[in-house]
């Protein structure tokens, strides 16, 4: 029996190595291709680091590719505003519904998961008249896309925060704080929020990720965020835009890889577990 087990394990290991290697090679080929393409000297056919030197020279980037600069700034602002609005809306509402309006919880869940059945491209169509008003009130800056992005991140953020709220006894905590004389504001800030730290972090992280990668809405509303800038620059200077794309992907990978170590303490608290659960449970 033990011999059989050992043979089985060996076969499993071989299968794992073969499959993982083949798929990883498939995934890494484009990364290699990007490095190869950006270090090409298109004029002479040799190798050159010119593209990367240009990219690291922030002053020149700003003047030669104004789109890239403004898109980058807009994306950074969006990555701050979107999670902020999302948290300000969701955390108090979800806590409040748990404490005082439990009958509303199904409605809240339904609304928060609704964006999953509305693809971004469909949302753009419906948002057109709304954004005419947004432009009227706030002006046409790219930053105001944050209102639409909050809707896009709603399902993921809801799932993350819901898991967090499930894990703590909101009612007891709130009642304890209230009986010691705390107002609702104090309960939110000093009791609920600190207890939700992990959930808030992963919800924000998902919001940042989604915001930095968003293209559809920004492009169709003709606003320049990082992705749109990459797209626009790609039309005139392919090497620069490929280099930016490479940096964006590698940056995202490093962040996710680092996060997977942070979240591995408790099973099911990592962002991936969250993400998987979100994808799996919702419909």
């Amino acid at each position: 029996m033990t011999g059989q087990r050992a043979r089985f394990r060996r076969r499993q290991t071989i299968l794992r190595r073969v499959v993982v290697t083949v798929v990883l090679v498939f995934f890494f080929v484009p990364f290699y291709g990007m490095l190869d393409f950006t270090t090409k000297n298109l004029a002479t056919g040799g190798r050159s680091l010119q593209t990367w030197k240009t990219l690291l020279d922030f002053g020149e980037i700003g003047s030669t590719y104004p789109d890239l600069k403004s898109g980058f700034i807009a994306s950074v602002l969006l990555a701050i505003l979107t999670p902020a609005i999302m948290l300000m809306l969701l955390v108090p509402t979800m806590t409040w519904v748990r404490l005082r309006l439990p009958g509303l919880s199904r409605t809240l869940e339904f609304i928060c998961l609704l964006p999953l059945t509305v693809p971004a491209i469909v949302l753009v169509v419906g948002l057109t008249p709304i954004y005419a008003w947004v432009t009227y009130f706030f002006g046409g800056a790219t930053v105001w896309l944050c209102f639409a992005y909050v809707i896009l991140v709603l399902p993921y953020a809801y799932r993350a925060l819901d898991t967090g709220l499930r894990a703590i006894d909101v009612r007891t905590l709130a009642e304890a704080a209230r009986s010691l004389g705390a107002g609702w504001g104090t309960v939110m800030w000093r009791i609920i929020l600190p207890n939700l730290r992990t959930a808030v972090l992963s919800a924000s992280f998902l919001a940042v990720a989604l915001t930095l990668g968003e293209f559809t809405i920004a492009n169709l509303f003709s606003r320049t965020n990082l992705q749109v800038a990459m797209f626009l620059v790609g039309k005139s200077d392919a090497q620069i835009s490929v280099a930016v794309a490479f940096l964006a992907l590698v940056f995202a990978f490093v962040v996710l890889f680092a996060m997977s170590f942070v979240g591995s303490g408790k099973a099911g608290t990592s962002v991936f577990a969250r993400l998987r659960r979100t994808k799996k449970e919702t419909a």
């Binding site: 080929v29 484009p30 990364f31 290699y32 291709g33 990007m34 190869d36 393409f37 950006t38 990668g213 293209f215 992705q227 990459m230 797209f231 790609g234 392919a238 835009s241 490929v242 794309a245 490479f246 964006a248 992907l249």
Partner: peptide
């Protein structure tokens, strides 16, 4: 998204 499309073209 876009980054993937560029990666594909470059490869």
């Amino acid at each position: 998204g876009v980054a993937l499309a560029f990666a594909f073209l470059a490869t």
